[in-house]
Nucleic acid binder design. Structure first.
Lengths: 204, 204
DNA sequence: TAAATTTTCCGAATTGAATCCGAACAAGCG
DNA sequence: CGCTTGTTCGGATTCAATTCGGAAAATTTA
């Protein structure tokens, strides 16, 4: 950010700009949104954008950050509940919340996710990855029998990345080949079958 | 495309433009490549771009199409070999070829994949998805015992999408938390464990 | 072959969006 | 209230995308 807002009304301006960014992005997609549109929706002059953001790109970056932060904030309180459930239910529960979250507010975050997954990859999605790894760790600690499973970091990596992408892709698809429930069930089965098979292999 | 090239030299111009697009994209990423750069690299005037492409975006679209077509062309001849292998080897084999393909030519296609996965989703990646579904179908026919597995379309969807994304993401990451071999092995295990567990459940 | 026609190429001119900037307006503070 | 600092703004500027009309090359026609 080019400059920090110190007064209250300046903070409100920054918020209005980011909010306008979400609205414009949800309406027309990131490529088609102009600085003029964002300024108009926010009810500020175009010049004001550049008081707090280096350029248009940075507005999207901040939106991306907020998206990831909000996702994490959505997941954190679920952790204590989720870690106590059987694996399949746990996955279904998490995915259901994730879908609702992405679709809220005219799919604001779904459109943002599509953008964020393309450009930033490491930079912004990484904290989310860390949170989910944390969730996996806690889950394992609540189910000590699963600690025998090999390659846990690798499997986390695959399921977290593959899971997020599959869900975002599916929700963006106007004519998906399978239903969301099938997708969620499939991901849950994938995890639970893998777990069960590993446990069978390790302690026969 | 705005107009079809009919003469030979015009076809060469179109090729040079697309080729230049790949080079420019690999160097600076899609956002930072200008029409001037593409024209300079291709050795043509800026005006020539617009003889055969509606706009800059369409150049990227054609690149995307070529990327997907080349990916399919890379996979097709592998199918007869792959379908005869045990599941784990089959997955490892496919992933190895996919990685080499993405990394060839200064990672030209890896950078393209990153872009294609963001924007086009359905439109361009879909033929690839269809080819891979085909591969799965053929694999199942060569291993009749696996036909009992439930939810095959769902599992294909998850493994194809999740697999492609995980690999692209991993190869783009300058400091990945796991090695590529671990990732590939993990995906292979994921598939094979799921298969084994399903077979055990269905015919105990 | 030469003229006529079609195709291709080009780069200066146009357009429009992104960004800059300095004047005008508000807020905090002695 | 003067003074300083923070904020807003929109016209001016910059730069990339796109257009356009004419020249050059290829092809066809006579």
């Amino acid at each position: 950010m080019a400059r920090k807002p110190v007064q209250q009304r300046a903070k409100a301006t920054v918020d209005a700009i980011v909010e306008a960014g979400f609205i414009a992005m949800a309406e027309r997609g990131p490529a088609a949104t102009t600085t003029r549109q964002i300024a108009d929706i926010a009810g500020v002059g175009v010049g004001s954008l550049y008081e707090y953001f280096e350029n248009k790109e940075e507005i999207f970056q901040v939106m991306s950050e907020r998206f990831v932060a909000d996702t994490i904030a959505m997941i954190q309180p679920l952790i204590p509940t989720i870690v106590r459930k059987p694996i399949k239910e746990a996955v279904l529960d998490l995915l259901g919340h994730f879908r609702d979250f992405l679709q809220a507010n005219n799919e604001r975050y779904l459109k943002c996710a599509r953008y964020a997954m393309a450009l930033d990859f490491e930079q912004h999605v990484e904290p989310l990855q860390k949170t989910l790894s944390e969730l996996v760790t806690q889950y394992l600690m609540h189910h000590p029998e699963t600690l025998k499973i090999r390659n846990i970091p690798t499997m986390s990596y695959i399921m977290i990345n593959g899971g997020i992408y599959s869900v975002v892709r599916h929700l963006c698809d106007p004519a998906p080949p399978i239903t969301f429930d099938e997708l969620a069930g499939g991901l849950a089965d994938m995890v639970s079958h893998y777990t069960e098979r590993e446990m069978a292999l390790v302690s026969p």
